[in-house]
């Protein structure tokens, strides 16, 4: 899938991936790749500025933890993050539904 399309929806992808529980960046990238059946392959480094942005907006919190012998920043959804994920997911479903109706008519 085009990088630009993923980039425009990276916040929602990260919020959705974090809904499964706290995770560090590498886990989040792997989770997005697996849950999209390999469709969403993004430049992995871009998740960190996105996560920092989400944190600065109060949508996620983070802390250093040692996981698997390495010190990692583990991210977790905040209450505001859950609300934002629900809102953005609802917006996305409406958009996807509209796209499907239009694109479906072409086939």
């Amino acid at each position: 899938m085009a990088h630009d399309r993923i980039k425009g929806n990276l916040d929602l992808l990260l919020l959705a991936a974090l809904a499964a529980g706290p995770a560090h960046g590498y886990e989040l990238v792997a989770s997005i790749r697996e849950r999209s059946d390999g469709e969403f392959v993004l430049a992995e480094g871009t998740v960190y500025p996105a996560l920092h942005g989400l944190e600065s907006r109060g949508l996620v919190t983070s802390s250093w933890q040692v996981v698997g012998g390495r010190r990692r920043r583990v991210y977790e959804l905040s209450g505001a993050g859950r609300d934002a994920r629900d809102q953005q997911a609802a917006d996305w479903r409406r958009f996807a539904s509209g796209m499907n109706r239009v694109v479906g008519d072409l086939s």
Binding site: H24, Y26, Y48, H52, R71, R73
Partner: peptide, 9 residues
Amino acid sequence: RMLSEAETH
């Protein structure tokens, strides 16, 4: 922080 996260990743 950015550098540390990048290295671990």
